[in-house]
Nucleic acid binder design. Structure first.
Length: 430
DNA sequence: ACAATGGTCC
DNA sequence: ACTCGGACCATTGTA
C-alpha cells in the first residue's frame, strides 16, 4: 500500500509486520522478567499524605452538600448536584442514565457552587491512591521489582501493558512527579529514558507527503509554532504560548479525524472559530487533506487500511447504517496507519536494541550472589523506551539507544529521539 | 459477573 | 444527537 514511498526516500527494512511482532516477542518477555525496581517508601509516604488531604476534602464536600453521600458514585453525585443543589445543566453532557459528572463538565460549574472544586480535587487524589499508590506496592515481587505483562493484541499493532499497566503511570503535575520518583534504578545504576519526538506527526507527514510538514521536519523548526503561525496568520516569531498550545491541539486532532466540535471543546472556544482553524489547516496542508481523503476511500473500497509494514486493520464500521459508527470507522481509517506505523518503528528499535545490548559484556564481576550489572530494556510506553544501565555507562548507552532508535527506519523526514538518564523515572525525563 | 462511568497514559 | 485514535483499571450499581 505504501510502496510508492520508496521513491520518496523511504527505506523500509525487508520485514513484514507479522515478522516484527514475532521478533519483538522474546524482547518483551525479557523486559517482563527484568521488571522495574520500586521504592515502596515513596509510594507509601505519598499515599499517607494524600489520604490525609482526602479526608479533609470529604468533610468539606459533605459540609457544602449539607449531607453525606458516596462521593465515588456518579449517580449519587448527579442526584446531589442537579436535584438537591439544583445546579444548572445547560451545556452539560448527558450519559445514558442522566447528567454527566465527568471532570470537564464539573469544571464548567466551578463558579456556581463551592462544592465543585473540592470534588474535583477529591476525584484527582482518590484516583491516584486507588489506581496507583495502593495497588502498585502489592505487585512488587521478592526482587523488589514490578513485572508487568506485555501484549500485542491491539487493533493498531500497539503494545499493551497489564497487571499492572505501566503505560499509564501519571506524569502531569507535581503528583505525577512524585509517583515517578518511586520507579528507580538499582545501586550504581541509572534509568535511561528515550522517546521519539513527534513520531506520529513525522509519520503522517511522510505517508501524506505533505510538503509543508516535510519541510518543517527537515529544517527542524518547532512544528507546533509553525502550525500556529499558519492558522493564526502571524509571523513565526510572534506566536504566543496560547497560540502554540492551540496549534498543538490542532496537529494532534488531525491524526484522530477531529471535528470542529471536538476542537472547540478541547480549546474552550466556539465552534465557528474551531472550524476556521481546521479550514486554515487543510488550506495549508494539502497533503494531509489528500491523505484523509485517500484513507477514507481506501477503507471504503477495500474494507481495510494498512501500516507502512503491511499490518492490516479491517474496518467494518464504515459499512454501518449507523452514521456515528460509520464516522468512527473513518477516524480509524485515518489514524490506524499512523499509530500502527509508529508502533512498528518502536518494535524494530527494540529488536535492534536487544541485539546491541546483548553484545555488551556485563560490566562488573558480581560480588558473591549478586547479579552483575548490565544494560537492559525494562519498559516500553508507545513512543518511549526505558532502560537500566551501570551508571558509568550512562553516557555511552544513552548515545547507543538514541542512535539505534533514530536509525530504526529511514523515513522521508529525520526521526529525533530525546534521551536522558537519572536515578529515577522522573529524573530520566529531563 | 457485567455494564456504565470516570480517569490515567501515549 | 454527536463529535478524538489506541489502551487498562477502579468503583458503583444492577442482574
Amino acid at each position: 500500500m505504501w510502496s510508492h514511498l520508496r521513491e520518496k526516500g523511504v527505506k523500509i527494512p525487508n520485514i513484514s509486520a507479522g515478522e516484527i511482532d514475532r521478533q519483538v516477542e522474546p524482547v518483551l518477555r525479557a523486559m517482563e522478567n527484568a521488571g522495574i525496581l520500586i521504592d515502596r517508601k515513596v509510594l507509601s509516604e505519598l499515599q499517607r499524605r494524600l489520604e490525609i488531604r482526602i479526608s479533609k476534602l470529604e468533610k468539606e464536600i459533605y459540609k457544602a452538600a449539607g449531607e453525606k453521600f458516596n462521593i465515588n458514585s456518579p449517580s449519587q453525585m448527579a442526584e446531589l448536584l442537579f436535584k438537591k443543589l439544583k445546579l444548572p445543566i445547560f451545556d452539560l453532557k448527558k450519559t445514558k442514565s442522566g447528567i454527566s459528572t465527568a471532570a470537564p463538565e464539573l469544571s464548567k460549574l466551578k463558579s456556581k457552587h463551592k462544592i465543585i472544586e473540592p470534588v474535583l480535587e477529591y476525584r484527582e487524589l482518590s484516583k491516584l491512591v486507588s489506581t496507583y499508590l495502593k495497588p502498585l506496592p502489592a505487585l512488587v515481587t521478592k526482587d523488589g521489582r514490578i513485572h508487568t505483562t506485555y501484549g500485542q493484541e491491539t487493533s493498531t499493532g500497539r503494545m499493551t501493558s497489564k497487571n499492572p499497566n505501566l503505560q499509564n503511570i501519571p506524569i502531569k503535575g507535581e503528583l505525577g512527579d512524585e509517583i515517578r520518583k518511586a520507579f528507580i534504578a538499582p545501586e550504581r545504576m541509572v534509568l535511561i529514558s528515550a522517546d521519539y519526538s513527534q513520531i506520529e506527526l513525522r509519520i503522517v507527514a511522510c505517508l501524506a507527503q505533505d510538503e509543508v510538514m516535510l519541510k518543517a521536519f527537515e529544517s527542524g523548526v518547532d512544528i507546533h509554532s509553525k502550525t500556529a503561525s499558519e492558522i493564526f496568520g502571524v509571523p513565526a516569531d510572534k506566536v504566543t504560548k496560547e497560540q502554540r498550545r492551540a496549534a498543538k491541539t490542532v496537529n494532534f486532532g488531525v491524526l484522530y479525524g477531529q471535528t470542529s466540535y471536538g476542537l472547540s471543546q478541547a480549546l474552550g472556544i466556539n465552534r465557528q472559530d474551531a472550524q476556521n482553524y481546521i479550514d486554515k489547516y487543510f488550506d495549508v496542508h494539502t497533503g494531509i487533506a489528500r491523505y484523509v481523503k485517500n484513507m477514507r476511500a481506501k477503507a471504503d473500497k477495500d474494507g481495510y487500511v494498512e501500516t507502512l509494514f503491511g499490518f492490516r486493520r479491517n474496518i467494518a464500521e464504515l459499512k454501518s447504517e449507523n452514521w456515528q459508527t460509520a464516522n468512527a470507522g473513518e477516524r480509524m481509517a485515518i489514524n490506524t496507519p499512523v499509530q500502527g506505523t509508529a508502533a512498528e518503528i518502536l518494535k524494530l528499535a527494540m529488536i535492534e536494541l536487544d541485539k546491541e545490548i546483548n553484545r555488551r559484556p556485563t560490566t562488573d564481576d558480581p560480588p558473591t550472589g549478586e547479579a552483575g550489572r548490565r544494560p537492559r530494556l525494562i519498559l516500553t510506553v508507545h513512543d518511549e523506551l526505558v532502560a537500566e544501565a551501570p551508571e558509568e555507562d550512562a553516557e555511552s548507552v544513552s548515545k547507543m539507544i538514541k542512535e539505534v532508535m533514530e536509525g530504526a527506519v529511514k523515513l522521508c523526514v529525520p526521526l529525533e529521539v530525546e534521551v536522558a538518564y537519572g536515578k529515577n523515572w522522573l529524573e530520566a525525563k529531563h
